[in-house]
């Protein structure tokens, strides 16, 4: 998509300050009533975190950018499906997770494939600065090696700061089921990282 020529401005400063103090749920209710500044505030609050989550989930910052757009466009299109009384953040992350799953189900973008049309063996390092690239890649691969059912609860718990109840709400599971998955995931992660330590020492 082409970038907009200028940032979208909605409402005045006083109105912006007032919506900034409202809860997500109140803002969502206002957005459903047709108030654009409410969406703007929700977007400002959550887009970066959602982008970070999608980057970790997909392993690609460029894919995450596309999926953030899809997530918020889905939010706009399906705002009538947000149930009053429910929590906003799990709903938003459920949309983001579904968007990522749909992306993975339908296949990666052509530019992310090798010239032979195959998946790349490693994830490109897109961060600047002097880092131990091999180590970073190995650790990241350890997380990627987890099955999705364990990886998503860990990502949401560890990196998004969500409680198990919120994660259960996001994934449509019971809280106990989420705890079991996260626990198994952490155990597996420890095994993978222990193997990493051995390789590093060798």
């Amino acid at each position: 998509m082409k970038p907009a020529s200028a940032p979208v401005r909605t409402g005045d400063d006083s109105g912006r300050a007032s919506v900034a103090l409202e809860s997500d749920e109140v803002l969502m209710a206002r957005f459903c009533e047709g108030q654009a500044p409410a969406f703007d505030a929700l977007f400002q609050r959550h887009s970066r975190q959602v982008r970070g989550y999608l980057t970790r989930l997909t392993g690609s910052a460029s894919t995450a950018e596309d999926l953030v757009q899809l997530t918020f466009m889905s939010l706009v299109r399906a705002r009538g499906r947000f149930l009053p009384g429910s929590r906003f953040k799990p709903w938003l992350y459920a949309i983001a997770t579904n968007a990522a799953r749909d992306f993975q189900r339908r296949g990666r973008r052509p530019e992310e494939l090798t010239p032979e049309g195959e998946l790349p063996t490693g994830i490109a390092d897109e961060s600047p600065g002097p880092r131990d690239v091999g180590l970073e890649r190995a650790v990241r691969q350890a997380l990627d090696a987890l099955p999705e059912s364990q990886r998503i609860p860990i990502l949401l718990h560890r990196f998004e700061g969500m409680g198990f109840a919120e994660i259960a709400d996001t994934l449509g599971l019971t809280e106990s089921a989420v705890k079991v998955r996260a626990h198994r995931g952490y155990l597996r992660l420890r095994e993978l990282l222990a193997a990493l330590r051995t390789e590093t020492l060798e």
Binding site: M1, K2, P3, A4, P7, V8, T10, F31, C32, E33, G34, A36, F39, D40, F43, S47, R51, E65, D66, V68, Q69, F72, M73, V76, R77, R79, G80, R81, F82
Partner: peptide
Amino acid sequence: DTLPGQLDARRFALEALAKQPKARPW
């Protein structure tokens, strides 16, 4: 710091609201 694509999402929201201000219940 906002990504260009994010601005598109915001613009899309405003366009959608202009077409249909109130959400249609599920």
